[in-house]
Design a protein around this nucleic acid. Sequence first.
RNA 1: UCCCCUGUAGCUCAGCGGUAGAGCGGGCGGCUGUUAACCGCUAGGUCGUAGGUUCGAAUCCUACCAGGGGAGCCA
Length: 472
Amino acid sequence: MPTPQRTRIQTLLTAETTDDAPNPVTVSGWVKTVRSSGGVAFVQINDGSSLADLQIVVDANCPDYPLVDRLTTGCSLTAIGVLRESPGRGQRYEVAADSLTLLGDADPEEYPLQKKRHTLEFLRELAHLRPRTNTFGAVARVRNAMAFGIHQFFQQRGFLYVQTPIITASDAEGAGAMFRATTLDLNDLPTQGGQVDNNADFFGRPAFLTVSGQLEAEIFSQAMSDVYTFGPTFRAENSNTSRHLAEFWMVEPEVAFCDLDGLAQLAEDFLRSIFAHVLDNCSEDMAFFNRFYDKELITTLEDIANSDFERMTYTEAVNALQASGESFEFPVQWGSDLQSEHERYLTERKVGRPVIVTDYPSAIKAFYMRLNSRAPGDQGETVRAMDVLVPRIGEIIGGSQREERLDVLQTRMAEAGLDDAPYWWYLDLRRYGTTPHAGFGLGFERTVQFATGMQNIRDIIAFPRTPRSAEF
RNA sequence: UCCCCUGUAGCUCAGCGGUAGAGCGGGCGGCUGUUAACCGCUAGGUCGUAGGUUCGAAUCCUACCAGGGGAGCCA
């Protein structure tokens, strides 16, 4: 006789009536906690399908009742029984067990997860077990929903999902230090004239892990019009903060026939859409985060989903900061980049919701950003760049309208000290049928971090990679 | 990479120059419906590592390692 198919706990807990469940019903999961009181035991199990556990009631009439003594936090089991209204408080339904099968035990003297709160720092050392906790289960479900919501947003707007390469030979994309990808024996490097012979490496040249799919996404935008990427990105920066990872996921739309205003509107629609999506689809998990991590979380996200973002130019931002009367650690002056404290003042104190800052000085931005025509009275050259700033996290999106004019782009590259030869294909896009186009990069983990109220980005990705840390 | 804080029982922490503690978790026992269950008993620690100061160091000093917060870099 085949094993009866199990019913997911989430399905049972959201059933209209007990009649909607199979009778008998089979449930499986991992034990969260066991309580026993004389002749009856209560076993709470979770299978990851919902935040809430299912209570299995095992009384002395059940032939497997003696098994209860061996049930401890962490062990896995299957129960077959009847779904019924629970007379106890704390849950609507429970399953009265007719049979119980212990699938795998978990020695309580060794199993590190206890039926009590653990610190996030401790759980970070147990990345293989932490998905079994309420918090990390909720993060996993919200992260999943947001990834789906992102695809849904772009697909509904006709964007093409493109997969850009992880390995790249461009070593100067301008977005930070890169990891080297090589098959050379580092203990015995082939040399040529006293230098490492890169010709002997796998690709016959130095290769790296990508820091952005932007340049390749631009190629497809110049054929398919509206495209986006969603994939892993690698930065070898020695960043030790609650907002940085060496390996993270980035969403990068690239839109042809679009200027910065269109891009800013896209970014705003996009963020509002995915926050609305997570509120609509993860209400149980979001209530959990709201209760235990950030009491204002749901209100904040609802506000964002329902109100326009503030827009200001860099010059306006500088003026506002200088007029704020705040004493900043770093002085605010036109031409220097906005510091974290400045960004946080703008989004948290001055505006109180997301802010899109545009038109930064060209000197502090990348070569590929479109140069503005300089008007009389301007304090310097600016480019059509934008950053979307949100409370608590700071920069969540960075983007720009791209420089589509070949001569201007070449001048900018020369000014940046870049050899344009390796970029021949990028320049070809400006030679043949160039278009005004724009794109941005969204840090996926930062977005999930913001949506959940979690303080540390290392708790947003399942297996965080940070300096000196790559366990699991 | 820089600045600050913290490493004591499985976990969370107290102790801050004079024989190492609590709560939770674990073990054993009790309790016929529990909800971080409850009640009783009990085991459990080279006080991050290595030096130094001292009659004596978990406690003071130095270095290193690890974790956290902030900054820079950015998403």
